[in-house]
Design a protein around this nucleic acid. Structure first.
Length: 276
DNA sequence: CATTGCCCCGATAGCTTG
DNA sequence: CAAGCTATCGGGGCAATG
């Protein structure tokens, strides 16, 4: 039964939040009215063309899109919006629905606010002279900029139809193994993140932290984007271990048939090879 | 040594449910 | 409307590779 949360609909409410007023260090996101998105970009995104064509070398001129400076400097087209549109056939749950358009776009460089964001590489070259001296790599599909080619290359995949990892339960595709693993928990019911104040448990850490903050007034003492302690999750029963060895022992004792054993076996062997 | 791929992560949007 | 759920995607560590 398709969950309705997967049936996303366009909900571009201009002015819902004035993201341009927020410093990137605080939010890093801006909202893009769909009306500002050039229609021909959609055509460009068809098929795998995006994956092949949306690179620019750093600082080089960008003639792929000619979007007015005043438009882009305030509101850039949503990359994920187009990506989602293309990705519809990947999931049967989403087919024959309105194309889901994410209104959010993350500004990843952190070096500039939307109001002063460089539009094309002429301005980007100026950005390269910022103290961080970060190069700017621009996606030619959505004009999103990245400080490294590596980030751009990965971003380009979101414009592509192809998903490398698919869920064996629902055939939904993901670009990231971790995203797939996290998704599978929705089928297996594994909820590794348990609230210490009540009996509730969650599939994602942020859900737990949100719950603790709202319900128990427990605020995590972490800085923005600070990493929490790593937990090793048994995807068979949801048990969490503090170390890989603990998880390994648990798997051997409780789930000897688990495929996780095989995966961990490989890692263990690799570690042994490295040690020797 | 630079690049690349894999893996894991947090932040958050947009949705459903009660 | 608050709480909870899930997907998306950028950031970054680390090991493998050329």
């Amino acid at each position: 039964m398709p969950r309705a949360f997967l049936v996303k609909k366009m909900n571009i409410t201009n002015g819902k939040k004035n993201w341009s007023l927020l410093p990137d260090s605080v939010r890093g996101d801006i909202y893009i009215p769909l009306s500002l998105f050039p229609s021909y970009v959609n055509e460009v995104c068809e098929g795998s063309l995006a994956e092949h064509s949306c690179f620019t070398t750093p600082q080089k001129s960008n003639t792929f899109l000619q979007i007015p400076t005043q438009v882009l400097s305030a509101q850039l087209p949503s990359s994920t919006a187009q990506g989602q549109h293309d990705q519809r056939p990947e999931c049967h749950m989403r087919t024959e629905r309105l194309p889901y358009v994410r209104s959010k776009m993350k500004i990843t460089t952190g070096n500039f606010l939307p109001s002063v964001a460089p539009v094309v590489s002429e301005n980007a070259s100026k950005l390269a002279n910022t103290p961080s001296d970060a190069s700017v790599f621009t996606c030619q599909v959505c004009q999103k900029t990245f400080s490294t080619a590596r980030m751009l290359k990965r971003h380009v995949k979101c414009h592509s139809k192809t998903k490398r990892y698919s869920c064996e339960h629902c055939e939904k595709g993901f670009n990231d193994t971790f995203d797939l693993k996290r998704h599978v928990r929705t089928h297996t019911g594994v909820r590794p993140y348990k609230c210490t104040s009540c009996a509730k448990a969650f599939t994602q850490r942020c859900s737990l932290e949100s719950h603790q903050k709202k319900i128990h007034a427990i605020t995590q003492q972490y800085a923005y984007k600070e990493r929490r302690g790593k937990v090793y999750v048994c995807e068979e029963c949801g048990l969490t271990a503090q170390t890989q060895d603990s998880l390994w022992n648990h798997l051997q004792a409780e789930h000897p048939q688990s495929r996780s054993i095989d995966c961990n076996e490989g890692k263990k062997l690799a570690e042994k090879d490295n040690d020797s």
